[in-house]
Design a protein around this nucleic acid. Structure first.
Lengths: 220, 220, 220, 220
DNA sequence: GATGAATGAGGATTCATTCAT
DNA sequence: AATGAATGAATCCTCATTCAT
């Protein structure tokens, strides 16, 4: 019905002296993130989002054609922010270095921790389970777009390691991190820097190319 | 009118030796699990659950006072099933054995895999995020009751290990497993026995008491 | 649909040694009176009536074809009880006596008081306003049947009195008594014998043929 | 879709000098009064009220949080209107006059008649019995607020009269008037000015301080 | 463009009535 | 005959969406 409300045509809008984050569209997305992260898509009413954003309900509908469009745009936007946080400006991987993989992981872990700390709602929102039902094809593609670079990096770094396949390791790693954050949010543990570090070390043991000794005697 | 859905197996069920837990209550819980697992609490209408159970809407309310009561009972019931699956009849831990911890983990991993395979909806439902909002105090207690035994076992097994604290390791392990299952459900990987094994090995590396000593006496 | 459940065919049922008030029909009516008097017709659920009567819901429907039939039968039954209480065995009016009217009123007032005291629920139920909507033609006729005797008695007794017409006086008298009972029920006054007496005296002043002096100097 | 019912007068209403109490809130209250007066609280569905008011169901809920809030607000509002009708601008009672009490009663009776004639639904609604169940504390207070002034006036006027106590007389008087109106509504009598007058005279006899003395200076 | 009052379809829940036992 | 579990229409209420201002 209403075709407007994509992404592209609004990016040009800035250009004032300061970056002044006032774009109403942005404000609505931020509010929607807070609300959806808190109570889920179905548990949140559109007027609640509007009020949280400090705009009228009608205004929200000028920027997003429907609640479903809103949540999809929000999902892609948030996923993209995660992607940026994890990948943008990452130091290049120098395969020549012996500990290239460990360096790479260390950096990834650092960034994951920063993202979870800086944007807890984004993290929580992205991890909601019941997404699938209302996400459209485009959103589901974006999902993959975040993982692919990790997967590629993993591929390049593992070299000839024979342990678990990269997709399994990514799933485990990502899941482990999510579990850590979730446990922290639910109060099952208190996540300070030290524990985050411990967790990182543990995860590294999980995905490390091989017991770190070149020759493995696993199957033979 | 409505012919399909859960009528057949109910009629045949009578006549067995015991009254059997055929119970309409059970049927409703099972249907609710399927529906809630699929679309979440807020995304599922009560009549949908009733229809999935093959009963009238009013009937559902004869067994559960409200939607919220239903979801809480379901949560506790499912959590208890998980607990049973993980702990009931588990072989005792013999601390005398050098590889007691690994044996324990191996058994746990096997059981996790079986549970996720046998009751995918149960697993998915339990992992939903937005639970907290509508769970009552009793349900939240049950939550803990599942983790405590794991935590205790972990404590006993770790001995003087220096790595991460038990709560962190449990969070990571549980998360990793959830991530694995979720990735499988979303189609990011295909989880066969081999991959499950690989994942188990990786997780073991993550939580193993002391991978620190170069020589591991795992298989030899 | 269901034609049964009238009145006649069940009256013969007694005949045992004692009057033993166990007739299930009667029990249901009594329970219905209590419940309807308390919360009104629309405010009372049929199962509530059944439970109050100590019978199954289905049983109630064996005696009364529907909730509406029940309330109509109950209304007529209760109205008849009121009629009996006011009129049955009343001493004949001896018009020869100078104070025939006052005697008649005194007896009426006594009986009203007794009825209100002995059957408060009956009284309350009969006075509910929202009756009209669900009462059938027959019930509305019964309504009149109670008033008619009063009206006739009034007619005979007033003789040539010129004050207010009989219908107005009956309305006022009945209303005054209802007001008294209602005020008592709501706690606006405490109705002991003394106050009931006072009220009777006041009402008699209201309807007395004329200022009570034989020769009236009202208009002449 | 729904064209009829309360749209016309609303549209014309704008444009007067003052904002006027046109208010959708008022319109809903008026409609609710008509419906509740007709079939009682439990016998009236919320959408019926909304339709009678010419608004959508959702709109009604924008003005009243629930059906129960609606009926309470309506009750207090209507009670206040009754209070106004009976008391506002009433001529002061001059105790010096011999017939102060009769004047006071005469005025009260006139006002009662006017209220019952002008606002029959208000009168009927207020007299419903089953109110108590759903009225909140505030509403029950208002109940008293109407009677108190009458009671006080009665106290002052009775002087040393020996008859019935004031609370009894008020109950009787109010009840008698209600009975009159109810009889009229049910068709047991036709209430014209003459009959209203007759009834007033009769009620005055009922409550008159001392009808005992033969000579009354009523008309001459 | 922005707003929020208005709307009615849809969701949770109740209850009069039926019917298999 | 008696029962009460089962039912779905009807009820109260919510909320995504529209539109007049």
């Amino acid at each position: 019905m209403n075709v407007r409300s994509g992404n592209a045509q609004r990016t040009a809008k800035r250009g004032r002296g300061r970056p002044l984050v006032d774009d109403k569209r942005r404000i609505i997305l931020d509010a929607a993130l807070r609300e959806f992260a808190e109570r889920g898509y179905h548990g949140t009413a559109v007027p609640e989002v509007a009020e949280a954003a400090g705009v009228g309900t009608g205004t929200l509908y000028r920027y997003f054609a429907s609640k479903e469009v809103l949540v999809n745009v929000l999902y892609r936007d948030t996923k993209a922010r995660l992607r940026s946080a994890l990948l943008d400006g990452a130091p290049p991987v120098d395969l020549a270095l012996a500990d290239a993989a460990e360096r790479w992981f260390s950096e990834l872990w650092r960034r994951l921790g920063a993202f979870a700390r800086n944007e807890p709602d984004a993290f929580r929102f992205l991890e909601m389970q019941d997404h699938v039902a209302y996400l459209d094809a485009q959103s589901r593609q974006v999902e993959v777009a975040v993982l692919t670079p990790l997967w590629l990096a993993g591929k390049r770094l593992r070299g000839r390691a024979s342990g678990a396949s990269v997709d399994v390791l990514i799933a485990l790693l990502w899941g482990a991190f999510v579990g850590l954050i979730k446990a922290s949010r639910l109060g099952y543990l208190t996540l300070d820097d030290s524990k985050l570090q411990q967790a990182g070390a543990a995860c590294w043991r999980m995905i490390a190319p091989e017991p770190s000794r070149p020759r493995r005697t696993n199957k033979g």
